[in-house]
């Protein structure tokens, strides 16, 4: 559980500079509709997550990702 929270925390830290300053990011935040993350931004975010955790994220798994928590779940599987 602790590890999951740690992953979630790191993902939120990576997302923060990519969205307007006062945007609240919670595990339930929808990446596309709440944060307006387009394909270019998403590539940048994924690259930073990959570097942070030293993993490779296949784009196949992103079809199942809607929220920040979904993303954390997928990352956790890859660590």
């Amino acid at each position: 559980m602790g590890e999951e929270r740690e992953v979630l925390g790191k993902i939120i830290q990576i997302l923060k500079p990519m969205v307007p300053e006062d945007t609240e990011i919670t595990p339930e935040t929808d990446l596309a509709t709440d944060l307006s993350i387009d394909s270019l931004k998403s590539m940048e975010i994924l690259a930073q997550i990959e570097d942070t955790f030293d993993i490779s994220i296949p784009i196949n798994v992103l079809a199942e990702v809607r929220t920040v928590e979904d993303l954390a779940t997928q990352i956790k599987k890859l660590i």
Binding site: M43, A47, S56, I57, P58, I59, N60
Partner: peptide, 12 residues
């Protein structure tokens, strides 16, 4: 690539 079932990765 999706249809084949390979793991797909993009590079910039």
């Amino acid at each position: 690539c999706r249809m084949g079932g390979a793991e797909m990765f993009r590079f910039k």
